[in-house]
Structures are given as C-alpha cells and as structure tokens.
Write a protein that binds this DNA or RNA. Structure first.
Lengths: 248, 248
DNA sequence: GTTTCGTCTTGATCTGTGTCAATTTCTCAC
DNA sequence: GTGAGAAATTGACACAGATCAAGACGAAAC
C-alpha cells in the first residue's frame, strides 16, 4: 500500500504519534480488523471527476496521494472552488447520501474509501470517531470562513499571495519548520484552478503572479516551481495578521 | 425563561418532536438536571460585542432571541461577515479556548451559555452530543461553501437577491410552507451589515435594492420591510439552481 | 529536428463596483 | 410638534479586474 513517509493518524486509532487530519490506511489495518471489509482503494487520473454534485455518494474517503478539488458551479458555468483535498484530507459526509460538490482529481490520485453505511454504524459504536470528525469539520469550517474573508475583501494581489503562502505551508512544512527564510515548492494547480479558487480570472492570476515576480516577492523557475526568498514579505503581501491562520 | 413558541430540540435531549439546530433552554431544564449548574443566561444590547476574535472564550452558547453576527477583519479595517446567528443557532467551539471571530449583537440578544469545560466533559460521556454537533457543523460548512460561491462568482444584484431569499426562508417559514407566492419579512440587518455579509459596499447594496424595487422584484415599505410578490422570480435573480440550497 | 496542443503571458479596452460627496429619510428624544 | 443623529439614497467619477484577442512557451508525438 502506498504510504511512504506520511503517517497520518487515523480516525479510528487516536494515539498514533503524529497527529494529522485523516483516515489512514496502514493504521486502520493494524488496529481495526473489522474495517478490512468496508474499505477499498480507488484511483483516478488527472482531470477525472470522482463524483458530480447531486450524485449518490455511498462512501467516505481519505486522500492517500495526489490532489483533488471540490467545486460548485452556477448554471451558466461560473465555477468556484470551495475546497482543496491534499493527501490525508477527508471527504464525504456521514448522514447524507448525495454529494454536495463536484469532486475532481487535478493530479493522479489514490483514495482510500469506506462504504458509508458500515462506516456510520461504526461511528455509532465508537464515540471517538464522531469526536475526531467533529474536530476535523470544525477545522474545515474555520478554513472556509478564512476563505470567505479572502473572497469578499482581499485584492487580487493579496489573494495570490495568500494562496502561495498556504501552499508553501502545506507543501513545504519541512522548510518552514526549519525556520529557513527561503522556501521552495511546486504549485499543484493550473492558473485556471487558482483562478477558480480565488474568484478571479486566469488572466488576472497570471498578471499578479508576474507582478509578484517583478517585485522580487517570489522567484519562478518554469511556470510551476516557486521560491520565496522572504516568507515574511509574502505574508505581509497576503494581508493576514501575524501567522495567517490555518487555511485549507 | 423567554421561550415562547419556538421549541427547538436540544443537543442533550434528542427525542423532542420538533427538530431544530440548537441547545434549547427549556428542554435542558426538563431533561438534564446536571446541566443546571453549568448553564447561565447572558443578554447583550444591540451593537455590543459578545467576544473579540482571539479573546479567551470559556463558554459555548445558543441564541435564545435576537441576532448576532460573526465577523473577521483585516488590519486596515476591511471586514467580512462569516456567519449570522439567528435564534436557536449555536456558537462556540468545543476543544479550543480562543474565539476565532468577533461575535457582535446586531439586535438585543439573549444567549443561553454553557461553561465550556463541563460541557466538554458532558460531550465525552454522552456520544449523542458529539454526533449532533457534527451534524450541525457539517450544515454550517455547507452553508459556508455556498457562501463562497456567492462571494467569489456572483454579481452584486445576484448577491442581494440571494440574501433576500435566504432571509425570506428563515424569517418567514410560515409563508413559505403555506405555498403563498407572496412572501413578506423584515430585514434584520442594516445596509452596512448586508454589505459586510456580501463583500460589497453599503452604497452598492443600496443601489441594487433600489434596482430590484424599480424592476418590481421586491416591494419596500419603509427601509426594512420587504414583500416579494413572486418568490420564483427572486430565486431566479439569485442565480441559484432550483431550490437554492440551505444557506446560513 | 518539426508539429501540435495545452498552458501561460501580455496587451488593449470595457465595465461593474468602489470611492467620495451631497442630500434625503427615518427614528427617537425632548 | 421640533431638532439631532443615524441610516439610507443618489450622483459623479475613478479604477481594479473582466473581457477579448494575439502570441509565446513547453511538453509530448512524430
């Protein structure tokens, strides 16, 4: 099972050393034998849709590797991303059968799925699971609300800077922990996906990235690889107070 | 205790006839005697701040009467509302000590508070509570994400129409249930608060309301009282598909 | 190597919403 | 009733970001 360095704690085994937001594959196998028959793996290729909004979704899942997005759309095609699923993130809603959003793989992705009915039954029997899910959901709610501030009140430049600092934090936690002021990472999203996340057009995204590059806030190698010489400067551009919170 | 017609089901007594999202005052007294000593009431006047973002918040609470808002701000004063608390709504976060947002009373308000520590202990002992809180939090997350679509992609006119149809739904459920196509309600918010909710300026809010009035979508009596002659028309203006979801 | 196709950048122009400012309308105290 | 302050409306103008359009770049196929 693909499960290299990352070892996120499972919902179902709360005393793993590393705390993370996930239902974890390996962990479950070790600890909860009954999960064996309600769990299965599915992989999707970049660009594939995992579920459409409104479709029946009879599982919950956690991302093992790759990246997926949650999006909502209006009839005329305007789309807004409302969530970004990175490895170890959880998706699905116990207690509701229909999916509320489109879930799309932006890279090749492997998901660890749990059939919903048995998962819910397990939740009934194991209070710890509901409590853990509650914590995770509250975290996501905070992230969503932080995102509302971004969508409603930030300028295009601030939006881009915010997104970059969030990706920097999630994508390069090692750099960050080491207090290196130079941080480096790959953008996991196309310009269009960034635009959908930020409530902008892809042209504006491109222009603002160019502007940040011109002003020395970031350094680009190719289109996707980003270096941030001074993380504090980027955070300042993002307009957040102090440590910028806990987005995504 | 002020608890007139509304009788929302409590987190702590799950088999009340009417299902609603709340920790309910009367209900608790009837059913859970041990709650008596962890529960107390607080009232605030219109305009008063209940808690500031970052302050210690040693209670969770439910709104008994009145309206409060959750807001976030940037250093330079730009503010974005991220939640609207109507009677029976729950506020506070088990498992975290600091408040994440400013909570402000927009009308006189009465809140039923529970000291956090004992509430959390009760959650430990009573699995049902965590499950109920999880449902509520998932609902709020859905609402927040619907709101992200509004903030990121809707026009000013669509934003106003969306807000009006949401208030109509929550404020005049009787009208709506009766299938009367004419719906009537009072706006519980100032133009400025509406602007903060919608990511607009108060001038734009005012202009768009005037435009909707001019176009016959709504009828105003005074500044706050709204009649909607044709609810379907309003929903169309809001740009939502079919039934518009489950905002706020 | 060349071609092709998707992604990205950049330019020119347009427009929706913000900004600034002047009135008007409400509400409530007196 | 009158006056004062808050809330809301309306107008004129500016500008950030959208739209439309043309190219540049990069990766994969041949």
């Amino acid at each position: 099972m693909p499960h290299d360095d990352v070892h996120p704690v499972s919902l179902t085994c709360g005393d793993c050393p590393i705390r993370h937001r996930a239902v974890c594959a390996r962990c479950d196998v070790d600890e909860i034998e009954e999960l064996e028959d309600i769990k299965y793996y599915r992989s999707f290729e970049a660009g594939q849709t995992v579920v459409w909004a409104g479709d029946k979704m009879d599982f919950v899942a956690s991302v093992v590797s790759g990246i997926a997005t949650l999006t909502q759309t209006l009839e005329d095609g305007r789309t807004q991303m409302v969530g970004l699923l990175l490895p170890s993130d959880f998706v699905g809603r116990p207690g509701r059968s229909g999916a509320a959003y489109n879930v799309t793989a932006t890279t090749n992705i492997l998901m660890c799925c749990f059939r919903k009915k048995p998962f819910e039954e397990m939740m009934e029997r194991t209070p710890h699971i509901a409590q853990r899910l509650l914590q995770m959901t509250l975290d996501e709610l905070d992230a969503a609300r932080e995102w509302m501030l971004l969508l409603g009140r930030k300028t295009a430049r601030e939006k881009i800077a915010s997104l970059l600092s969030i990706v920097a934090r999630r994508d390069a936690p090692i750099n960050h922990a080491a207090q290196t002021s130079e941080v480096t990472f790959d953008l996991p999203l196309t310009r269009e996906a960034m635009a959908d996340y930020l409530g902008l057009t892809l042209e504006t995204v491109s222009r603002q990235i160019s502007a940040l590059k011109r002003d020395g806030v970031i350094v680009l190698e190719g289109k996707r690889h980003v270096s941030v010489p001074d993380m504090d400067r980027l955070l300042m551009e993002a307009g957040d107070d102090s440590d910028g919170g806990f987005l995504i």
